[in-house]
């Protein structure tokens, strides 16, 4: 069995603060982390390997500092890691990212499963996974919350997907691409041994020249979308009206009255 996990290094958005006076982002000292959803993707790949044997390869496209994200995956137990790093890749939107990753996956060779996170918390798009699957012409199963059954001989997989109405049970042919939500598992912590292994691990680095890519389709050049403006979100209109009272009972009463009087509850 071979599983490939696509991971991304992202700024920890909980640490991003807004400067109230200037309305701009304060980025100083914001740490970089492995995209939280991707840790669930790594965990699921490791679980599949524990059950069926085989190999887990993690891959990321990013600056050289993304090496630390790959090392974290190795510390968790991934077998090998590949960094796609080239200034030609820079500025890629989800189209160009999926294109580049799919070319790298083709170079890796045979695989049974690709795991991605549901979305990356910096861009929040969730488009890269479907993009990769489409580029590779394989089936995609998004928002997976349970991997119910995997049959490597019959080349089938059965999963539960978290959709608006509940959990949808789907059966699909392998190979396929799975994007995971956080319900799927509890990611393990790296072990001391794993951390040591990660420190020593050699990370394969591929540049544009190592991949069979069309230079017009990668990086900013290959990206159909353009970010033209960044601004701070508009504040919510209006002020908070505090409901005061002598007792909790009275406060609750005033609130109930307000909600009915303002026709918020009818």
């Amino acid at each position: 069995m071979r599983a490939i996990v696509c991971i991304k290094q992202v700024p920890d958005t909980t640490e991003v603060k807004i400067d109230p006076d200037r309305g701009t982002l304060i980025r100083d000292g914001v740490p970089s982390i492995v995209n939280p959803f991707d840790t669930y993707a790594i965990e699921e790949a490791l679980r599949v390997r524990e059950k069926f044997g085989g190999q887990v390869t993690v891959i990321t496209m990013g600056p050289s500092q993304a090496t630390s994200a790959l090392k974290e995956a190795i510390a968790m137990g991934a077998d090998e890691a590949i960094l796609l790093n080239d200034r030609e890749f820079a500025g890629a939107d989800t189209w160009a990212t999926a294109y580049t990753l799919s070319k790298a996956i083709k170079k890796i060779g045979e695989f049974d499963l690709i795991f991605c996170g549901r979305q990356a918390i910096d861009g929040d798009t969730g488009q890269t996974g479907p993009g990769i699957a489409t580029q590779l012409q394989i089936n995609q199963l998004t928002y997976v919350c349970r991997l119910a059954n995997l049959d490597l001989d019959k080349k089938t997989i059965e999963v539960e997907r978290l959709v608006e109405e509940g959990r949808e049970v789907v059966k699909s042919a392998l190979p396929c691409l799975v994007t995971v939500v956080k319900d799927i598992n509890q990611p393990r912590y790296p072990t001391i041994l794993g951390i040591r292994r990660a420190q020593k691990a050699l990370i394969t680095v591929w540049t544009a020249r190592d991949l069979d890519v069309d230079s017009k389709l990668i990086g900013l050049n290959g990206s159909p979308t353009r970010v033209v403006k960044i601004s701070t979100p508009p504040p919510r209109a209006g002020q908070c009206e505090l409901i005061k009272g002598e007792s909790a009972e009275q406060q609750a009463d005033f609130l109930a009255e307000k909600l009915l009087a303002e026709k918020i509850i009818v």
Binding site: W95, A98, Q127, P130, T134, Q140, V163, P224
Partner: peptide
């Protein structure tokens, strides 16, 4: 931008090679 819409849009935009803005 529902689970189905995001699943579908990502695939369609990739086939066609056009830009897709999420959410």
């Amino acid at each position: 931008a529902s689970t189905r819409g995001r699943d579908l849009a990502g695939a369609v935009a990739t086939y066609i090679y056009t830009g897709l803005t999420a959410d």
